[in-house]
Design a protein around this nucleic acid. Sequence first.
DNA 1: TATGAATGAGCTTTCATTCAT
DNA 2: TATGAATGAAAGCTCATTCAT
Lengths: 209, 209, 209, 209
Amino acid sequence: MSKREVPASVKDARLIKKRRNQMIKGAIALFKQKGFHRTTTREIAKASGFSIGTLYEYIRQKEDVLYLVCDRIYDEVRERMEKDIDTHQGTLESFKLAIAHYFKVVDELQDEVLVMYQEAKSLSKESLPYVLDKEMQMVGMFENILKQCVDNGVFHLNEQEIRLFAHNIFVLGQMWGFRRWALQKMYTLDEYIEMQTNLLLKGILEKRS
Amino acid sequence: MSKREVPASVKDARLIKKRRNQMIKGAIALFKQKGFHRTTTREIAKASGFSIGTLYEYIRQKEDVLYLVCDRIYDEVRERMEKDIDTHQGTLESFKLAIAHYFKVVDELQDEVLVMYQEAKSLSKESLPYVLDKEMQMVGMFENILKQCVDNGVFHLNEQEIRLFAHNIFVLGQMWGFRRWALQKMYTLDEYIEMQTNLLLKGILEKRS
Amino acid sequence: MSKREVPASVKDARLIKKRRNQMIKGAIALFKQKGFHRTTTREIAKASGFSIGTLYEYIRQKEDVLYLVCDRIYDEVRERMEKDIDTHQGTLESFKLAIAHYFKVVDELQDEVLVMYQEAKSLSKESLPYVLDKEMQMVGMFENILKQCVDNGVFHLNEQEIRLFAHNIFVLGQMWGFRRWALQKMYTLDEYIEMQTNLLLKGILEKRS
Amino acid sequence: MSKREVPASVKDARLIKKRRNQMIKGAIALFKQKGFHRTTTREIAKASGFSIGTLYEYIRQKEDVLYLVCDRIYDEVRERMEKDIDTHQGTLESFKLAIAHYFKVVDELQDEVLVMYQEAKSLSKESLPYVLDKEMQMVGMFENILKQCVDNGVFHLNEQEIRLFAHNIFVLGQMWGFRRWALQKMYTLDEYIEMQTNLLLKGILEKRS
DNA sequence: TATGAATGAGCTTTCATTCAT
DNA sequence: TATGAATGAAAGCTCATTCAT
């Protein structure tokens, strides 16, 4: 799985990359403002700095733009996560740092995350699985971190609990973005991170000893 | 706030209620399948059992249908919650029951909740606040339950924590619906309820004393 | 010719008269504002003080309203003309008075005249002749006045000239209404009357001896 | 003032000119038959020789077509007037020629003039002033001619009279078109010109000397 | 490769007219 | 006679997509 090939008429791979970068950048800006459906292909072309004809040299359908955008956003998030996080330590501290870092990445990319969050459902039956797969990889990252901690005896969680917990972390992170209208009025990002970390951890830390 | 009046050309209030019920029912079925944007007004009319002309006797714009749908879904959720839940007991057991009940309601209405979840953002700047307001009322319900428990000494939480916790409960409930493609493959509803309740509770229960 | 029967479902002639009066009054007010095409039958019904269903008890088609309106406006103009003008004197003074009076009537009914002027063209091929016929009767009135004057030796005009002159008077009167955006900024009604009368008269008054 | 820019999506100015010419020609033909309101945009597109989509590449709204049509007709009328008329001579003969020429132009373009005459009022508040301005320029042309004659002592008229007279000429010219159902049955164009010229002139020629 | 004019299916919305009550 | 809910044809307009240049 991992990547759906979006066919282009143009051959030059270098050019494809360049043009698609322009396209993704322009499209995200537009999708933020008006959503996928209310954005026209002409607008995307214009925001990308080329003509509508050129746009269609690099995609087949409008929906391809959405796929490329979603794909890119996940790459971006994962890249930032991987750059700064060591998922293999398996200590309480590394777990806390991972959460904090993830929440910060969501905060930085909150517009992008929101776009993907709201528009991914408009992907075709064909494209959606690729994006969901990427999402599961992100969740999988949290699973791995948790597993390391469990292996090290920091937490006691079974397989099922690890999975659910990873989902919770993933969603509570996104929540900072998609419920910003409520949350960001009440807390700073740091407060949010601290409170959520506490709540999450208290739930699973071994309390007897 | 509480309700935006959607203007109708027809005067008979009873009829408005009846027709709008048909409309909401038809629209939800369609929005489930194809989303708001891909559903046409003609389809809505047809699914509602009347003509396109009649549809427009009961709304002014397509978007009104979406508002009506969102509004109804929240009423439905709240109604079911209120019917079976006593929010004033302030006991651990009542808290657990409230969560379990909420999760069950989300499960029963999962299509509806998903629709509202995914499409609400397409509401106009004018309508959105009304829907967000309803959402905050739901969150407020959890806040109240938590407050009662805190007052009774069941939990120790400050104002900020209560609020965040209420949001978490709300979102983790919805999560059962909007991440069903992952979660419902892994757990039954009862398992989900039990595990989440555990995780949530362990985080806040007073452990020593 | 003289009148086209607009069929009504209702039998009671008295009622027909009453309802049509309401209708004409309401319609004129609306046509003034927005023209015939932009006025809906619902608006006409409402402005008339009854329901759309009732409206259609007294007409067959929307266009009938326009016909009734045009018909009424001509009656109104003619009625006012006939009330105050003696067309049989054949003196210079009576001619001047007739013109002045006509111009004053146009001024008083300028909205109505404008409506008829602008909308009559929307009448069907069937109705239009009846309205044009009424218009010709008005022109005929001026012809008669002119003829009397010619018979009395006040003017020297042949048949052709009388006819054209009557048209000129008719149109220059209406002009006060339909070019009001220009004329009424430059002249008062009295100035307009005086100047036009002078110009008209100098052209035909016997100048020698 | 002088011209309202009607925005086009297409950039090639040459093409815009060409397509709009087709459009204007097609639209005039249709407006003649059925008026602006009863003509559909699809009909205009078809009569112009292109698709509805293409039509909207060259205008923004249906009303723009009407504006373009009115604008063109005035240009056409003025162009023809300017080509053959010297407005600066200030002789009786040149005045007569100007009237005759104007009446002939109205006769040649009588369908166009009629269209503009009947439909201009359907222009939006935004466009109308531009058309009225053009109309005033035409009237201004007659004013100038009259002024020259007054300066040369051919007529004795004050400012106010010149203005009114110019309006009269303008309207009596149009009258040949918009009352053709009556006038053109009674007179030939030449007769009409001669009679109107006589009536107009006798009114203002200096009679004593 | 890049362009942008052309296309037309399809959208939302309106409104004259009907007819059961 | 009066009502107004129901209808659906038809309107204006948009926009994803194509293709000749």
